[in-house]
Amino acid sequence: MREITFSAAIREAMVEEMRRDPAVFLMGEDVGTFGGVWGVSAGMLEEFGEERVRDTPISEIAIIGAGLGAAMSGMRPIVEIMFGDFLMCAGDQITNQVAKARFMSGGKADVPLTIRVTSGAPGSAAAQHSQSPEAWFMNVPGLKFAVPASPADAKGLLKSAIRGEDPVLFFEHKMLYAVKGLVPEDIDFVVPFGQAAVLREGSDVTLIGIGIMVRKALAAADALAEEGISAEVIDPRTLVPLDHETLIRSAAKTGRVVIAHEAHRRAGPGAEIAAMLAEEAIEYLDGPIVRVAARNLPLPYSPGLEEFVLPSAQDIVQAARSLAG
């Protein structure tokens, strides 16, 4: 274990998988010479060459569609969509082709396609470069969703995605790229999908964080501890599959649940988690399931406006306090 950034952890996962398996390659806008607009693939072109670290035209349909065709033809592509906001440019390929290729073919198509996507608000990037679009696609059966919040999970989940036979939308929050954390060096270190992580144990309230909101939930838990409120912090790590058991166990223990994500509140990932808990754990709950999320407004440019729309650690504290206080 050594401390590396979230960005380096993702690069390390790609590099290690490309070294061990010639079928793995990376393509996307500016991933080669530029090294990725967020610098994630810096240096990979030099090691692997233009065939396997492929700069593409600005063509999201072709990037994802060709990724699918290559995946069904024996390759294991990693494709990068520079901003999650651009996924809708390739909406048909994602929802009608990638997600359903296996099912429609009677289970015959393997689709080992990893779609890496940056998400979230990096600050004053405004309405078309700041969104967290997980739930846009969670309604489509056939896809899996990874939302890592730490460097170790980013590396381990990405390896699981690349090695798996199912298509994965892999969300990388832009404000996590520079975050450092301990990451195992074992090249077979993987984090399985469908296993939530309990990051902090507590007894009064469960804080379920998604992506960057995991960090804010941990900060909120510190603040709540000073007020004598014991918060448990859980990171689902993948939204599909979702680890029901760990979430239900925690809800049963604390009786109070706050779900925090940067996606919009209405029909966001938290709505699905809240519905699941309402269906499967209502008898344990002492109050409403509360969502802390972006307001149902486009992401604004001006910092004060943006802050008004986005959820904060303080919002989590207040939500937890209102439940447990």
Binding site: I61, A66, S73, N96
Partner: peptide, 13 residues
Amino acid sequence: GGIPIAAGAALAF
């Protein structure tokens, strides 16, 4: 819908 997929298969080849 199938056209980009064909391009991807060709890329693999």
